[in-house]
């Protein structure tokens, strides 16, 4: 269960506070996959950070029951460390045992198809390799709720199929919240749509409704 109670979030700027969310009260359905819409700067990533517990609201309260991922995207990794070291680091933060770490690292190595680059610093990766790595590591952990920030299936068709397959597998046990500018992707993966606009969040029962609201805006 994720619920927001009178949540207000703003960022101080030179021209006074910039409100991203203003007195938002909302319950997010936990058994649905949610697509988040909004123009650039409307607060999609801020919402994700709030849900992930990375950032705190200025006012109000966010209650999250269950295990929520970190905002899964292309950031949060350390360029000077290898893919393996990055994977081990995240496992350690999540308190995995030595055996679990070995299994998860093996999974990431296998899934990301990086080969020898898995042992090289992340900063030497091409953007495609980076995406593959991020995707693999995001899927290595079992969460109740995955927050996915512009992390879409990448690479050739075969790799994309593999990504969609693992998404479908996870969907049986967990739910997703997607932020993406790729409408087709959102349409395929999500059941309901959230539209963030002018400090408010509107829920739509279907993605199509959310898209038409987004397009109309």
């Amino acid at each position: 269960m994720i619920s927001l109670q009178n949540v207000t979030k703003y960022f101080p700027t030179k021209h006074g506070p910039h409100y991203v969310l203003q007195d938002v009260t909302l319950d997010l359905p936990m058994d649905k996959n949610i697509g988040v819409f909004g123009v650039n700067g409307s607060g999609k990533s801020t919402l994700m950070n709030l849900l992930a517990g990375v950032d705190q609201p200025n006012k109000g309260k966010i209650t999250v029951k269950g295990n929520v991922s970190w905002p899964l995207g292309l950031s949060g990794y350390q360029g000077s460390m290898s893919g393996r070291e990055n994977a081990e680091f995240i496992c350690r933060i999540y308190g995995k045992s030595k055996r679990q770490i070995r299994d998860k690292v093996e999974f990431v190595k296998e899934f990301s198809e990086l080969g020898k680059f898995f042992e090289m610093p992340l900063k030497s990766y091409s953007s495609g390799m980076r995406s593959k790595f991020s995707f693999a590591i995001s899927m290595a952990f079992d969460f109740d709720y995955y927050l996915i920030d512009e992390l879409t299936a990448v690479g050739d068709k075969r790799f994309k199929d593999k990504c969609n397959k693992i998404f479908d597998e996870k969907k049986g046990k967990a739910n997703f919240l997607f932020v993406s500018h790729n409408m087709n992707e959102l349409k395929r993966q999500c059941d309901v749509g959230l539209f963030i606009r002018d400090g408010g969040i509107h829920i739509y029962d279907s993605v199509d409704e959310a898209i038409s609201a987004y397009n109309a805006a």
Partner: peptide, 29 residues
């Protein structure tokens, strides 16, 4: 997933950051 106590989480974070610092702080050489 198992719920961890705050102390367990803190220990895990200190340990993982310590390993990372030891790798990066003292330089690649």
């Amino acid at each position: 997933m198992l719920q961890r106590t705050p102390l367990q989480i803190q220990k895990a974070v200190i340990y993982s950051l310590l390993v990372r610092e030891m790798k990066t702080r003292f330089g690649s050489y």
